[in-house]
Amino acid sequence: MSESLYAQLISLTAGTLLLTAALIVWRRSLRASVRLLAIQGIALAGLVAVLGWHERTIELVLVSLLVLGLKAIVLPLVLSRNVLTHDDDREVPRLNPTASLIFAALLTMLAYIVCRPWMGDTDDPTSRAVPIGIALVLIGFLLLITRRRAASQLIGFLVLDNGIATVAFLTATGVPLIVELGASLDVLLVVLILQVLTGRMQVKFGGTDLDDLTELKD
């Protein structure tokens, strides 16, 4: 693979990651968000695959398959089951989409500023993509704060996790299979547990709006 193609592919996958995150911030429909999350998972898997192809390591390709299976197929499926079980899939965010998008843009800028010392003035495409991972983490956090529904919280959490994974893959040029396996299992477990809790919330309180949970303090 030529270096320029490698750089372009890295930029493409990383750009897709950021774009899907921004779209998730913009969209109110939970179904659309889950679909975007699946696309994000594909982009992440693609990123890992490109890295593996470039480094010529079969292990990374395996990791990319794992990522593809988990983040692009299994988790979105689990989430969409939850979303589909009840009709109302409209999120009413605490912040309107315009303001959220402005915040997302600011956070992306912050990510670039923070990463300046690491990037330096290298032309290495992986280093140049690291800020996108950080931006993903921050945007995931933003989603956690501004969304009310439990399912949206899960989506925010997964965006955050995608960001962490992106940074890990880019800075360490791939992660050993065993480590990725462990991390993926963690995420899967967290999502399943939260899924169960969300179901219980639905049954107990008739809704999954987190604002209704403020009575549970002390």
Partner: peptide, 24 residues
């Protein structure tokens, strides 16, 4: 500590942002 999950998340988010800003 008013019981709102969002508020607690905001605390850690703001802390993270502050740390990042200070670092940069």
């Amino acid at each position: 500590q008013n019981g709102s999950l969002h508020r607690y998340l905001t605390y850690s988010f703001v802390a993270l942002i502050v740390v990042l800003v200070v670092v940069s």
